[in-house]
Write a protein that binds this DNA or RNA. Structure first.
Length: 547
RNA sequence: GGCCUUGUGGUCAAGCGGUUAAGACGGAGCCCUCUCAAGGCUCAAUCCCGGGUUCGAUUCCCGGCAGGGUCACCA
């Protein structure tokens, strides 16, 4: 059979470059010996989830801790997946969490010498290589229809045989020349399949950067490399792209491990040296009694928007992911609280082989810690950003008075003091925590634990002696002085020594004041709250607190 | 189902032939305290099971079991 002729009938493009040219167009990158070239290669659905961020972080860290390059390539070979504005959305999402690309689609960079970075725009490259494969007899046209394929698969399934297009099931593999041209002339649609040279009985020892030694078998499937629309499949396109974009490390989910044999064979027939592969295990979630992969449909916490809306500190999400990526990160971060997480020496080899359960408690803890390190100014900015995007009308009005908010934050969050509040994990909580400093949001429940007479006496007594100029100790002394009048203990020690002798303790007395002024039995230092509120508002709240 | 893969406290996990089996999150308790928060201290909790190999296995081998992945002209 004249393969050259067949190839030019199947791939009739007139403007294809000789494949050797591409080696010159996309030369080896100049890089330090250990510099990694990594990539994020999403399909353009625009939906980036936590799992993507997790793997993107591994890519980004691998590249940027080695002076390498992290680039963005868009795998748009499937038209159905395309969503408008998706690429920008991917970039924006990653930027929000502090990850940036050095090169690639929609990235303005002098490094963009390995493009185009959209696979659809690279069709000529792929087709040139497919053509060569056909000429070499390593690929062939397949005219099988979807229904034919389906029935073969059913037959294989019922006979408990391995499904797929291989061996005796590869009907079009050895079509005669006449038959091929007959089909073509009849206008039948076709795909191009790889004529696999491998045998499933041959085991290959493969070294995965994360999983270590992995045994896989050779591929024996005549996989589709060029779809009937003339666009390659993922398998083929990514092999070409990773080679010509001179990728050194491919980090991807472990769901790809099973198609690794195909990719290895493709590299082989194309004459490429495969990059290193690192297969990450996916993030899991506890559901009922068992672990399962985090799912887009069931788990809102998979969506990155979830973290934005809830007001997690972006770096906290990244740091949490870092603890999952390299488990010694946590210890390092504890020892180096002031260092940027980027100073940590990330290594892909340190990644865990098994799938980590996503642990919201842990994320919350990391976020708390991050937020507790913010200065008043930073804290304001952080909360303000959230308020502007997700807060209520009232929240936005409150946040116009930056000076006041900062004063409130310093008190409530204990900023600048030794007793730093450390239980705020999300912006939303922080915003709600200071609501009672605004009259329009002040909504006390007055859930006193004492009778009305006691409450009123306490409130009145306090109002009578209250002086906004008092410092904390004078203020508290005045509170203590009220105790005997309602039968409470003025000193906790007295109360503890003989609890039955009193109706309550100073702490209970303070609680009454607290409920009146702050609207809840718990709050930071009451004296300071009153000082921030000012005399008039404090007194009017104390008055309103009477039953 | 075939193939691949994983299995240390509730969770993330160090450990890689001899350890009191780290650490962190979470939990419990105590102390401090005008409450909350913060801080200090203490505690509970783990090597999936069964066979080997070995003087000795959490560590090595085999077999179970359990989880995960994958079997498209989707990526």
């Amino acid at each position: 059979m004249d393969m050259k002729k067949l190839a030019s009938v199947l791939i009739p493009d007139k403007d294809l470059l000789p494949v050797e040219e591409y080696e010159k167009i996309y030369p080896e990158r100049e890089r330090a010996p250990k510099a990694e070239i990594t990539r994020l290669a999403p399909s353009p659905t625009g939906f980036i989830h936590l799992g993507n961020l997790y793997s993107a972080l591994a890519d980004e860290r691998s590249a940027h801790t080695t002076d390498g390059v992290f680039y963005l390539r868009i795998e748009d070979t499937d038209e159905k997946r395309k969503v408008e504005g998706a690429v920008e959305s991917v970039i924006r999402s990653l930027n929000y969490f502090g990850l940036g690309f050095d090169e690639g689609a929609e990235i303005d960079s002098p490094l963009n010498k390995y493009g185009p970075y959209y696979q659809r725009q690279r069709a000529k490259i792929y087709r040139a290589f497919v053509k060569v494969l056909i000429e070499k007899g390593l690929a062939y046209p397949c005219f099988c229809t979807e229904t034919e394929l389906d029935s073969v698969r059913e037959e294989q399934t019922s006979q408990k045989k391995t499904t797929g297009y291989y061996g005796e099931y590869a009907k079009c593999r050895n079509l005669s020349e006449e038959k091929i041209y007959e089909n073509i002339n009849a206008g039948k649609k076709f795909v191009i399949r790889l004529k696999s040279q491998g045998g499933i009985e041959n085991k290959i020892a493969f070294r995965d950067a994360i999983k270590g030694e992995v045994t896989v078998t050779e591929n024996d499937q005549d996989v589709v490399i060029l779809k009937s629309d003339g666009i390659p499949t993922y398998h083929f396109a990514h092999v070409i792209d990773d080679h010509f974009m001179r990728t050194t490390l491919v980090i991807r989910g472990e769901e790809w491990l099973s198609s690794l044999p195909v990719h290895l064979e493709l590299h082989k027939v194309l004459g490429f040296k495969p990059p290193r592969y690192a297969h990450t295990s996916s993030l899991m979630k506890m559901d009922g009694g068992t672990k399962r992969k985090l799912s887009k449909r069931k788990d809102p916490e998979l969506s990155l928007d979830y973290y934005r809306k809830a007001g997690y500190f972006p770096v906290a999400v990244v740091k949490y992911l870092m603890t999952l990526l390299n488990s010694d990160f946590e210890e390092w971060a504890l020892k180096n609280p002031d260092k940027d997480y980027r100073d940590f020496k990330f290594r892909i080899e340190k990644m865990s082989r098994s799938g980590a359960l996503f642990d919201l408690d842990k994320l919350n803890d990391v976020s708390k810690t991050e937020i507790s390190r913010l200065s008043a100014e930073e804290c304001f900015d952080f909360l303000d950003k959230w308020v502007q995007e997700f807060g209520s009308e009232a929240d936005r009005a409150h946040f116009k008075d930056k000076e006041y908010i900062i004063k409130v934050l310093e008190l409530v969050m204990g900023i600048g003091g030794k007793k730093r509040r450390k239980d705020i994990e999300r912006a939303e909580q922080g915003v709600r925590l200071i609501d009672y400093f605004f009259d329009d949001a002040f909504a006390p429940e007055y859930s006193y634990r004492f009778d009305d007479e006691t409450v009123n006496t306490v409130l009145d007594e306090f109002i009578n002696t209250y002086d906004p100029e008092d410092d904390n100790s004078v203020w508290f002394a005045k509170v203590k002085a009220i105790a005997p009048k309602v039968g409470f203990a003025g000193e906790t020690s007295e109360y503890k020594a003989n609890p039955n002798a009193f109706r309550g303790n100073v702490s209970d007395l303070a609680e009454i004041l607290r409920i009146a002024v702050a609207g809840a039995p718990n709050s930071p230092d009451l004296c300071t709250i009153m000082r921030i509120l000012g005399k008039d508002r404090s007194v009017s709240r104390l008055q309103a607190g009477k039953r």
